[in-house]
Amino acid sequence: MRRDPPSDYPLWDEDDDLIAAVRGDEVMRMRVRRWGDVEVVIGRGGAAEVELDLEAVAADGVPVRRRRGGGCAVVLDPGNLVVSLVAPLEGVGGVTSAFSACTDWLCRGLAEAGVPDVCGDGVSDLVLADRKVGGSCIYRTQGLVYYSTTLLISPDLERIERYLPHPPREPEYRHGRRHVDFMGALPLALDADAVIRLALLLERGWTGW
């Protein structure tokens, strides 16, 4: 009997410090970071051989890691902002509500940052004018929720198209569109001032579950 998921890729553990801190004092932590390198991250139970063109990824020497949350593979690049939130929440349920609360929180923050028309669609996508501009996942464990989202600011869509075959499952609003026709970009700046401003807006805007 196989007892474990494939441990073929190292864990994407960039926010483990936040998780540890929240476990300790039960105080919400969040982080906004501009991603520095190109990297592919697959979901906790994702099958790399299905979700990735492994040859294309390997040819470019791009690392692959596995995140704590679920969902399909994503390509991180310097055109992305990664927003992470870890907050205490009792039990292990409430995943749907947690997604909804986090999506609303991000939409409000983005509106304050000057992008008022972002809304949620699919399970947890952020959508602007029918284009996906953010993908999210949750890792839920006893007493806390770890939510992570990738905001597309100036994504390398051509690279995404090369690395990611059409995903094995898709939200209804995708309508079979290719990545380049389905994904969009948030009209936000990526400089340090803009990232800090967004982080402050999000921190101020968190009202809890």
Partner: peptide
């Protein structure tokens, strides 16, 4: 996704038992 125990194992209350994935969410159930 993952079992932290096998039959016969001793487990403490609140210790991780199993990981389960739903759409976009992975849950460690104690």
């Amino acid at each position: 996704l993952k079992w932290y125990v096998q039959p016969g194992d001793l487990i403490e209350e609140d210790a991780p038992l199993v990981d389960v994935e739903t759409d976009k969410a992975a849950v460690t159930i104690p």
